[in-house]
Amino acid sequence: MLSCLKKPLTVGTLLAAAALSLPGVAAAATAGPVDLGTLPGDQFSDVAAINAAGTMVGQSYPQDVRLRYHPVKWDRQGRISALPTLGGEQGSAVAVNDAGVAVGWAFDGHEGVHAVRWAPDGSVTALPWAGSSSDAGVISRTGVVAGGGVDPQGTRVSLRWAPNGSVTPLATLPGGGQTHVTGITGDGALLSGEATDAAGNQHAVRWTATGAITDLSPGNQGNPGATAAAINDFGVIAGTVTEAGRPAPVVWKRDGRQVRLGWPASPASATPRAINRAGVVVGSGYVDFAEDRAVRWSASGTTVLEGARRSAAVALNASGTIVGNVESVAARWDADGTETILGTLPGGQYSWATGIATDGTIIGRSDRSYGWHAVYWPAS
């Protein structure tokens, strides 16, 4: 497996490059990922999140048309253990905070689906909700949990659970329908998400701890509408608005002010995926049919991280190290833009990096002859 080391391209350089094709420079071999394996009897696994201590959470499942998910966690050494459900067979852990508290969903003994919280010792607690089903998607540093549920009328709503388990339904837009939480600040005071209005248009929104909603894109209409992909600890939200029928990248400051992010194509079409505490945003920008390029937006401007090949940046840590993929193989970009291709499991062709911890440990997945496995790349 080879690393590719390349300096970042500014937008001006990208536009000057013919057909966006600039050659990479091969470098020394690099170690591939570590296989996180599966529970006994399963063939596939996915890792969803990692905390600062190296605890990872996700799911393991068999090669079965029913896709029977089993919630799991891995320790810093990559050792897997099962997490309990509420008496049913299935569940999935999707987020974990630095205290080691994980959240997700699990079946009860009657196949009811409930949002759950797993303590560091693995014990499970159902989070209360009066509707027919619920699930948890994010957790703050302080233990605030958010997710969604189906209310007694059958409508999908968003929910916030305080550390003591009390639940607060999050407001919808006037006359609107479904909502979806996408992120939470470290203190749990603000949440990002998306909501539909009375006409069915999607809006980027923000909620406070009381459930009050702010429409961040009130004038934005049409398909695909507006999105709120992620929020940082200071309440800055990265997402998109619709311009000329395409998603244009923006951030919303804590005061609700919208700031346009640059992209050289016209009309603009780029999608933020993550934002760190420093306000650095990463994602991908569209350049041609089925072709995107990994991109970083920062105070110094727009930087195309990979100018020659199909790529995307999906996550970054506080130090500015970015992860994503290049031509369906996991990649890392250091803060100075240096690119490293991370490789695959032995016999695999594809891998994806999906998250990165404070210390630089990277999580993702890779194929191999008998299925997909969760993997991690230890911090160097």
Score class of each variant (00 low, 15 high):
Leu9Gly: 12
Leu14His: 10
Ala16Asp: 13
Ala16Cys: 08
Ala19Arg: 11
Pro62Trp: 00
Arg66Ser: 14
Leu67Glu: 02
Pro71Cys: 02
Val72Pro: 00
Arg76Phe: 01
Arg79Leu: 10
Leu86Lys: 02
Gln90His: 11
Gly91Ser: 03
Val94Phe: 06
Ala95Ile: 07
Val101Pro: 01
Ala102His: 03
Trp105Glu: 14
His110Ile: 05
His110Asn: 15
Gly112Met: 09
Gly112Leu: 04
His114Asn: 06
Ala115Pro: 02
Val124Leu: 04
Ser132Glu: 12
Ser134Tyr: 08
Val138His: 13
Arg141Pro: 00
Asp151Val: 06
Gln153Phe: 05
Gly154Glu: 11
Thr155His: 15
Trp161Asp: 05
Thr168Met: 15
Gly175Ile: 09
Thr179Ala: 14
Val181Leu: 09
Val181Gln: 14
Ile184Thr: 12
Ile184Phe: 05
Gly188Val: 07
Gly193Tyr: 08
Glu194Leu: 15
Thr196Arg: 07
Ala199Met: 08
Asn201Tyr: 14
Ala204Arg: 08
Ala204Gln: 11
Thr208Gly: 15
Thr210Arg: 13
Leu216Val: 13
Gly219Ala: 08
Ala229Thr: 03
Ala229Gln: 09
Ile237Ser: 07
Gly239Arg: 11
Gly239Pro: 04
Glu243Ile: 07
Gly262Trp: 00
Pro264Leu: 04
Ser266Asp: 14
Ala270Phe: 05
Thr271Asn: 11
Asp288Met: 01
Phe289Val: 10
Asp292Pro: 00
Thr302Gln: 14
Thr302Ser: 08
Val314Lys: 03
Val326Phe: 09
Glu327Cys: 05
Ala330Leu: 11
Arg332Asp: 03
Asp336Gln: 12
Gly337Val: 04
Thr338His: 08
Leu342Met: 14
Pro346Trp: 03
Tyr350Leu: 15
Ser351Trp: 11
Thr358Asp: 13
Ile363Arg: 02
Arg365Asn: 13
Asp367Cys: 05
Tyr376Arg: 12
Pro378Lys: 08
